[in-house]
């Protein structure tokens, strides 16, 4: 049985929780079992916020929080200054950071794969606003292969059913990131 655990780190208000929810929906559309939940805390705008997702081939019974993730998505690179991201990733795990460059903070991390993607600029270009929570999943899909681009698109449509324009732009930006990472 293979189960993968994903942690999303963002700032309160940035949509880290929505991000995990979209991922769970996407994985389910791909025929997998999934589970997503927020860190059970009191959210404050701007404070670090964690959310979690599990993806598995079999029914997920486990209900503890995710302590060491296989993949950790950082929606805001500045959070690396006050959150010890490395302690939350498994050995051999992967960190994907929304950043213009490889973050210095993670340079010393051993046994962990570090990726970065300039999601903010892609979001600004395509969506017109710095909404990176959903489109970062494009990078995750591309690097991990755990969800398909089609699954993500379906999940985005579902999540933003009442806002088709938001869904459309998010899908476009997600695809852009997905393809840029593939190259």
């Amino acid at each position: 049985m293979t189960m993968h655990e994903i942690t999303v780190l963002g700032r309160g208000g940035q949509g880290a929780v929505t991000s995990a929810y979209v991922l769970a929906k996407a994985a389910f559309h791909d025929g997998k079992e999934s589970q997503a939940f927020p860190f059970f805390g009191v959210e404050r705008r701007g404070a670090p916020v964690f959310s979690f997702c599990r993806i598995s081939d079999e029914q997920i019974k486990l209900r503890q929080q995710v302590y060491h993730a296989d993949y950790l998505l950082v929606l805001d690179a500045a959070l690396l200054d006050n959150v010890d991201v490395i302690s939350r990733v498994k050995e051999g795990g992967t960190v994907i950071v929304n950043s213009t460059h490889a973050p210095d903070k993670l340079k010393s991390a051993k046994g962990i794969n570090i990726h970065h993607v300039d999601a903010t600029n892609i979001a600004l270009k395509i969506i017109g606003k710095p909404f990176v929570n959903v489109i970062m999943l494009g990078a995750f899909a591309s690097i991990s292969g755990l969800v398909s681009l089609n699954g993500l698109k379906k999940a985005i449509d579902e999540m933003f059913a009442s806002k088709p324009e938001v869904a459309k732009l998010n899908k476009k930006a997600t695809e852009t990131i997905y393809k840029s990472m593939k190259n």
């Binding site: 929810y21 769970a24 079992e33 997503a36 939940f37 927020p38 059970f40 209900r63």
Partner: peptide, 10 residues
């Protein structure tokens, strides 16, 4: 609370 109220699952 939270474990089941706030979880997304099939």
């Amino acid at each position: 609370g939270f474990y089941l109220t706030h979880v997304y699952e099939p």
